[in-house]
Amino acid sequence: MTKVVDRKPLTFYERTYLPTLLEGLKVTARHFMRSVKGGNAALQLGDGYYPEVPWQVAEGYRGAPYLVRDQDGNTKCVSCQLCEFVCPPKAIRITPPGADGVPADRPNAEKMPREFEINMLRCIFCGLCQEVCPEEAIFLQKHYSLTGLTREEMIYDKERLLQLGGVHAGIQKWKHKLEEAREQDTFPVKTD
């Protein structure tokens, strides 16, 4: 059941736009006068504001995505390219290792990206890469103010991402699998 709400017809005086004009003038003038008279604390010049004192991000803030290493210092990313696929602005670019590429620096994980680039100019900090990552290798961290002088500079490569990302201690899936396999003496297990 739709309810039709009748608009109150405007009087002639109201239709001249004058009352709203005057009302607006009143409001803006009041604020202006208050600011000028010093009622505005922000007017006081000084420190304690953003550029001098960096903003402290809250817990759970989602800033720039970086790659992380595990507690053994190994690259967690296995180049599955799901983040590249899911990335809405196509900011992530992964070069897979290929058949002759370097194997993963973790035993048993078989591969890691040859190159991993995030174009921070494109990145929208949406967090889908973190969401989709099956290896918990990429995390949105607390950096929010990324600057650079050139576009090239804003494309973060693997080394830089890993360095910024730091260590994330978590379940070491591949290591666990390897240990499990080693306990079974039935098959020789390749460790490298």
Binding site: E110, E180, E183, Q184, K190
Partner: peptide
Amino acid sequence: EAKVHKPKA
């Protein structure tokens, strides 16, 4: 239980 691990690659 632990999975049976067979040769890889």
